[in-house]
Design a binder for these strands. Structure first.
Lengths: 164, 164
DNA sequence: AATGAATGTTGGTGCGACCAACATAGCAAG
DNA sequence: CTTGCTATGTTGGTCGCACCAACATTCATT
């Protein structure tokens, strides 16, 4: 396998800025890390998810964590668009993993509840996600994992995204 | 804004494993961080990218960094599938930002070279990406950014995927 | 000479994210 | 009360990214 060309930098930008180095761009690294994470997750869900995908897992996890909620609240909590929440919940409901009931106070609103089979499936998916996570974070020590997690958390300040 | 229901955990999993907490799952956080990064990038490319997208930026950056390369090598360096490399390069070539020439040693292979306009466009896109990156990393201090970068780099071990 | 591997290309699939439009329900202000 | 305004759920569509299958072409190996 020819190593093609050695790194060459014929033009150093005069603006004083460092040249475009892919490896130094955090945006790029995040994309790559997500691609890896997402790829592993997709493969795991494909083989062990029994037809469920990332959206389903997120919704089940949110329901298990915070209890019954409306679809709009679910969407805000998980970062999933309303329309996608609707579609994913229909999948889950058709498999008996969640239940939708009209909110008596707001008849337009629907309260979504996770069922016992839904919680069981969530536990299964948790194992899948944990396995993927272990593979993904394998190069890091435990302390580094904590650091990484802490930094990631700081990156996501707004759960409910105040507009201005 | 009704806080809906307080966190309730009616069933503690008997396996001894902690309950599914979204906020603690690094896979989840990476996904969210990427969603944010990707969303900002997409918006920036939409408004200031002049028709180019992430794939184009990656390819231009790889070409600028390592010099002319074959499409297969480009794909391996950027993590883009061969077929997508072909399509994206066709876009770039039609705009005169790269040039494709047949490798005289391997007539099946094509050597891709970035043009002067291509390098200029890359500089423009660099500014766009930098701006996005600054917004994304705003919550972190300089030291934290370095840490974050170092950890991310460790997460991505195989650039060229040693075959076995 | 035959086999296999690599390359570029075409075409298709799936997931995630996002947007537009709509009907319905509730709320607030006139 | 009636008129907006907002929120909610639903339908339907678009886009970008990642991935796979198949094929013809070219090279390297046996």
């Amino acid at each position: 396998m020819p190593k093609s060309h050695p790194p060459q930098h014929p033009m150093s930008p005069p603006g004083g800025r460092a040249p475009a180095r892919l490896e130094d761009r955090t945006t790029w690294l995040i994309s790559r890390a997500f691609a890896r994470s997402s790829g592993l997750l997709a493969a795991a869900f494909e083989s062990s998810g029994r037809g469920l995908r990332g959206y389903h897992y997120r919704l089940l996890a949110a329901l298990d964590e915070s209890g019954p909620a409306s679809q709009a609240d679910l969407g805000r909590a998980t970062g999933i668009d309303r329309s996608d929440v609707t579609a994913a919940l229909s999948d889950l409901e058709s498999h008996g993993l969640v239940e939708r009931s009209v909110d008596p106070d707001h008849r337009r609103r629907k309260i979504v509840t996770i069922t016992a089979p839904g919680a069981a499936r969530l536990t299964e998916l948790d194992a899948v996600v944990d396995a993927v996570q272990d593979r993904l974070l394998a190069p890091l020590t435990a302390a580094q994992r904590r650091q990484f997690l802490a930094l990631l958390t700081k990156l996501l300040p707004a759960d409910d995204a105040p507009p201005s």
